[in-house]
C-alpha cells in the first residue's frame, strides 16, 4: 500500500518543464528521502502534492485508504513548508490554536504545550512569533505540522538553520512518529541526515527522478564505482609495471605501488578476478578494503550533479 502515488505529474513554467512526468510511489509507514540540488524541482513537486501548486498535467493520490474527501485528507496530512513565516502578533501556542481550529480539531491546551515542549520550544510557548529566531520558526513549523497527529507528514528541510542539539531532537521526533506508523516525506540538503533516517531515497535532477530505492539498492546501482584498496606483499618494480598495465583491463584509476594497489572497479565479481590474478602472480594479499559508496557519492554521481561535482 502506498501513501503517495503520482502519475505523470508535471509542472511547466513558460517553456521550462520544472517537473517532468514523475511517477513516484512512497510506501505507507516509510521515511522517504527526497534529494536534489537547488532548482532540481523538489519543492515544486512537494508543493504540487501538498496542494500549494497546481500541476500542469498528471495526477496524484495521497493516503488512498482515507477515502476521497479532501477535507478528511487535509486533516490527516501535516506539512512543514520549506520557508516558514508566522503571524507576528500570535504566540507559539496561539499559532497551534489557530491552525488546529482551521483543521476543525479540538486540541487541548496541555497537548499543544506538550507538542511545543517536544520540539524544543518550552521557553517560548507564550512568546510572540515576531521574536522568534529562524531555528525557532522551524521548530514551530514542525509543531504545527504535527498538531493533527498526521498519517502523512511532509517535511521540507526540517533541520536547516537549526542548531546541532535541535537537529538531534528533530531526528528523534521523526523516528518516533515514523515508529507509530506515520509516513514521512523528507527533503534535506543534509545527505547524512537522509542516509541516517530514510528507508527509501529518490534523487531528483532537472525535473526527473534519476534514481530511487533503499540505500542498499542505490549502492548496488552505484556498483559501477567501487573503490578497492589492496594491501599486499612487496613486489618488484617490473611486476609493479606489468600489474599496472594488466589491471587497467579490470578497472579504472589504477595505482600500483610496491605494497598497495588502488583501483575503481565496476562490479564485485571483478574483485574476485583481481584476487585470482594476484594469486597467479604469487602475490600475497593481506587485506582488501572495499569502500561502500556514501549517499553523497551516489548523489554526486547522479545526472547533472555529476557535472557540477
Amino acid at each position: 500500500m502506498y501513501a503517495v502515488e503520482t502519475y505523470q505529474l508535471s509542472k511547466v513554467y513558460g517553456d521550462k518543464k520544472v517537473v517532468n512526468e514523475i511517477n513516484l510511489q512512497v510506501k505507507k509507514g516509510s521515511i522517504f528521502g527526497f534529494l536534489g540540488k537547488n532548482g532540481a524541482g523538489k519543492s515544486t513537486f512537494i508543493n504540487m502534492i501538498t496542494g500549494l501548486t497546481n500541476p500542469t498535467s498528471g495526477s496524484y493520490t495521497l493516503l488512498p485508504d482515507q477515502g476521497s474527501s479532501a477535507d478528511k485528507l487535509r486533516s490527516r496530512i501535516g506539512v512543514l513548508p520549506d520557508y516558514s513565516t508566522f503571524y507576528d502578533d500570535l504566540t507559539a501556542l496561539g499559532h497551534l490554536k489557530y491552525f488546529s481550529r482551521i483543521l476543525g480539531l479540538k486540541v487541548s491546551k496541555s497537548h499543544m504545550e506538550d507538542l511545543l515542549k517536544k520540539v524544543g520550544l518550552e521557553d517560548a510557548i507564550n512568546q510572540k512569533a515576531k521574536k522568534f529566531s529562524f531555528g525557532m520558526k522551524k521548530k514551530l513549523g514542525l509543531a504545527q505540522a504535527l498538531i493533527n497527529e498526521p498519517d502523512l507528514l511532509f517535511l521540507d528541510e526540517p533541520t536547516s538553520g537549526v542548531d546541532a542539539n535541535a537537529i538531534l531532537n528533530i531526528h528523534e521526533i521523526i523516528q518516533d512518529i515514523a515508529a507509530q506508523g506515520t509516513t514521512i516525506f523528507l527533503t534535506s540538503h543534509n545527505l547524512d541526515e537522509v542516509e541516517k533516517l530514510c528507508d527509501e531515497i529518490a534523487i531528483m535532477d532537472q525535473g526527473t527522478i534519476k534514481t530511487q530505492g533503499t540505500m542498499a539498492q542505490l549502492r548496488h546501482d552505484y556498483q559501477s564505482n567501487i573503490t578497492v584498496h589492496i594491501k599486499h606483499s612487496e613486489i618488484q618494480a617490473d611486476v609493479e609495471t606489468s600489474l599496472n598495465q594488466e589491471l587497467k583491463a579490470y578497472g579504472s584509476d589504477v595505482e600500483v605501488s610496491s605494497k598497495h594497489t588502488d583501483l575503481v572497479v565496476s562490479s564485485e565479481q571483478t574483485i574476485a578476478a583481481i584476487n585470482r590474478l594476484y594469486l597467479k602472480k604469487d602475490i600475497d594479499i593481506f587485506r582488501i578494503e572495499v569502500n561502500e559508496p556514501t549517499l553523497e557519492e551516489i548523489f554526486l554521481s547522479t545526472g547533472e550533479n555529476k557535472q557540477s561535482a
Binding site: V79, P81, S84, F86
Partner: peptide, 8 residues
C-alpha cells in the same frame, strides 16, 4: 502555505 494545506 500553512493555511492552504489545512483548508480549502
Amino acid at each position: 502555505r500553512f493555511i492552504a494545506t489545512k483548508t480549502t
